[in-house]
Nucleic acid binder design. Sequence first.
DNA 1: GCACGGACGATTGGATCCAATCTGGGTGGA
DNA 2: TCCACCCAGATTGGATCCAATCGTCCGTGC
Lengths: 221, 221
Amino acid sequence: MTAERRVTAQGVVLASLRTDLLTGVLGPGDQIVQESLAERYGVSRVPLREALKTLESEGQVVYFPHRGYFVAELSVADLLEVYRLRGLLEAEAIRHAVPTLSDADVAALAELAALVDEAAADEDVLAMTSANRRFHFALFDAGGLPRLSRLLHQLWDATDAYRALYFQEQVNRDRVGGEHADMLLALRARDAEALVRQHDAHRDHSVGTVRAILERRPPPE
Amino acid sequence: MTAERRVTAQGVVLASLRTDLLTGVLGPGDQIVQESLAERYGVSRVPLREALKTLESEGQVVYFPHRGYFVAELSVADLLEVYRLRGLLEAEAIRHAVPTLSDADVAALAELAALVDEAAADEDVLAMTSANRRFHFALFDAGGLPRLSRLLHQLWDATDAYRALYFQEQVNRDRVGGEHADMLLALRARDAEALVRQHDAHRDHSVGTVRAILERRPPPE
DNA sequence: GCACGGACGATTGGATCCAATCTGGGTGGA
DNA sequence: TCCACCCAGATTGGATCCAATCGTCCGTGC
């Protein structure tokens, strides 16, 4: 997105916040106490607050004036809405991407899928989450629709905290590899519609599991 | 979205920035000098920067570390992408909304459409932009899909600066009233598909004009 | 005449400090 | 016992100050 090579504290803090959200160090519903977090990251509250503003407009945290920031909690309705919107937008991205893919692009995608499998074999949930995301977005980005990619990033971010839980179960990790292999077959055949269907199925499995996780853990208070 | 009744400087500044972007006080490509803007709004740079962060993640301004914020410029490709995404998402919103509309809801929508006509008669471009937005979002919000509404807000925001130009032409102001009337007919008949078609046509007129405006004014440098 | 380099002013990034507000607990009264 | 109120600690919101970086302009050397 904003291609930045220079590092700033807010950028570093934003990255730290994202991994903390992803790994559950900051769990849904938690209040974010600026003072202690800033100290943890070794910066003052100013860059932290700017990073939080970014996360707020992505819906990752919610903000109440004079009360502070809290890690967003997803309701089941939210979850279903996010996945429905992803269905719409990802189909669009795929239909744009497939006709443009060179053989080299497909090979690169296969490579990324292999990285997901590796991480799965190592049972490294964090690496798997990251590799999985790179695989899918390599496909989405290929369509050359940057706004669409941006919206998809937001939607993926919104469920990151829960996706990590999803990959913690062996059965889910195993299934993903096979589904990615199917998608690669459709990719090599340049069959966009088949790919959309497989992608839908892939996503449906995911939403089902995440929903179960969500319903198993009712709101903390 | 974030329902806040308490006022904070950042909130006020954010609203001011939005109207300045809408009215062209801040035009596409302009650098945003924090010191002078903060002085204009009567606050320090801190709340201004937080407001800018919000606008950045909405794509209204772009940020380069150590260089600052600039008002985003829309390329024609951007514009077409935004409108294509709007097409997808607004159709979804309408299909969700129509079955839920009570007669009172439809009456309220008619009332909002009348406000647009009033503003058009007064040739008050700002009021018309605002009323037009309220009319459309009353419809989108009725579907009860808050994430979807949120995404649509972002997409509308992205072209706000140009929409103001659109309403400055008499012929466009005149056409909008008739199109809204058509939409109300479809609404009263609870015909979602007809409404989607009319909405598409409505949007296509808009994109055509805005595109012409955009191509008439090439990038400033 | 032109390319390169350094220094200065302008601007942003971040830290610290103080004011405003919220939350929770305690106290007094009905 | 319960409720209303108030106070104190904790936390956020914002202003000011200083450091880091960028862009420009001028001078120097080739």
